Amino acid sequence: MRRRIREQEEAGELNIVPYLDIVTNLVMFMLLSMTGLVSLGVLNVSAPRIGGESAALQGAEQPKLLLTVAISRQGFYIASAGGALEGLEKSIDAARAPTVARKPDGAYDYAALAEHMKRIKARFPKETNLILSADGEVPYEVLVQTMDACRELRGAAAEGAQDRKLFPDVSLSILG
């Protein structure tokens, strides 16, 4: 009797091959569907570069702009770390008033920011780099809309402009 019980236990194995086939098909389907969705929401940003190609390409005759836009709870701070722009600070100082303050209703003023970027682009037409930094409490949507306002002109501001592109090469940084 003992011999028969052991033979029955060994013969009762589950065949999991059909289940693995289903799981493999589901995983393949999910991977293919995710790659289609991911490509729709890609923004081209990069980490700040130190030295390298861009420093070698810029001649000594043109001062470095090193344009930085910082987002805080008070508004937008615009600085030129290279000191190439008069009227702009060389560093971000949260103790002073922002360059572009928030609207009275509390919303960020993207149109005024785009107008500042347009004036800067008029003085530096070949410059494409921008360093964007944000306070940790700034919502992600504000960061994306700020990036859009700095990358190209939209709406009424773009009507009279020859080139709609402002600063398309955005590097992200931490405000600190």
Rank of each mutant, 00 (worst) to 15 (best):
E13N: 10
S72Y: 02
A56E: 03
L85S: 13
P104V: 02
M147E: 01
A70H: 00
Y108W: 11
L67A: 06
P104I: 02
E53K: 12
D135V: 00
T35H: 04
R123D: 14
R151F: 01
P48T: 10
I120P: 05
G59V: 11
I131P: 01
E9D: 15
L67Y: 03
A122E: 08
G106Q: 11
L88E: 00
K126Q: 14
R2M: 15
F124P: 10
A55P: 03
A161H: 00
M30H: 14
A112K: 11
L67I: 05
Q74H: 08
K165H: 05
L32E: 14
F29C: 09
L37Q: 05
V144G: 09
E86Y: 08
L172A: 09
R154Y: 09
P98E: 07
A79S: 07
Q162E: 10
I120K: 04
E137C: 04
M147F: 03
I71V: 09
V27G: 02
P104S: 05
S91L: 11
A11S: 14
M34K: 09
A157W: 01
A122C: 04
L85Q: 14
D148H: 03
Y19P: 10
E141S: 07
V23G: 06
L175I: 05
N44T: 09
F124C: 11
A114S: 14
H116W: 10
N44R: 13
G52P: 01
T128C: 08
G59Q: 12
D105R: 02
G75K: 05
